[in-house]
């Protein structure tokens, strides 16, 4: 564990707490993509179910439990509790375009060996799917052209999580010769998808302005 990874995980955890806070205080899931949240549940379940048969550390297991349960809870809030506030007409990104390529890639590029096939394929699937899971949310943002400030804080914390993993990988390569090409390449793509968002967040939201996309 190094500082970058720890801050990344903390940022990830914070993003989820911000999102739950936003939905509960506004009693609305306006501006939130159900499809992106559904993808995160798929990502977390396919990657973190290994907590049943793999033990890394107490920290690792607790975080996995947190991510599976909190993302499921968010899905419940959106789909059941505050369902009337959901507007499916703007959340139109097609999920098969993301899930099918991620599934195919995971069958081709994975770390499977004779001992572990399914768990390794599921792991790489979750990594590929995570790297693009934010797209329905960014697409929704693009369509509405603006966002509540709290939603932009959520997106910033979520993007910062994977961005912080990049110095972590550099650090791990330098100190333990650890290289995970699947995670690194997907992580770079995932972070790059936030480039536009980060730009507007830093130039507008941080200065107290409303998040609005240029017309």
């Amino acid at each position: 564990m190094n500082i970058f990874r720890f801050l990344g995980d903390l940022s990830h955890l914070t993003s989820i707490l911000i999102l739950i806070h936003k939905i509960q205080t506004s009693r609305s899931c306006r501006g939130i993509s159900y499809k992106t949240q559904l993808l995160y549940v798929i990502v977390f379940v396919s990657r973190y179910l290994d907590l049943v048969w793999t033990y890394v550390s107490l920290y690792n297991s607790l975080m996995k439990l947190f991510f599976i349960s909190s993302s499921s809870y968010i899905l419940y809030l959106i789909k059941i509790r505050f369902r009337p506030t959901l507007d499916p007409s703007i959340d139109t990104f097609s999920l098969p375009y993301l899930i099918i390529p991620a599934a195919i890639l995971s069958l081709i590029f994975n770390y499977a060996d004779e001992k572990a096939w399914l768990s390794e394929v599921l792991w790489s699937f979750s990594i590929y799917l995570e790297s693009v899971a934010i797209l329905p949310q960014l697409f929704l943002l693009q369509r509405t052209g603006e966002a509540e400030t709290i939603t932009t804080h959520y997106l910033f914390a979520l993007g910062a999580y994977r961005a912080l993993y990049i110095p972590n990988w550099i650090y791990r390569y330098a100190t333990e010769s650890f290289v995970d090409p699947i995670a690194i390449i997907s992580g770079l793509i995932q972070t790059a998808l936030y480039a536009d968002f980060f730009y507007i967040y830093f130039t507008k939201v941080i200065r107290g302005q409303k998040f609005e996309l240029p017309a």
Partner: peptide, 10 residues
């Protein structure tokens, strides 16, 4: 050298 199969990252 640690291998990537350990998946110790979140």
């Amino acid at each position: 050298e640690k291998n990537h199969h350990s998946h110790d990252e979140l």
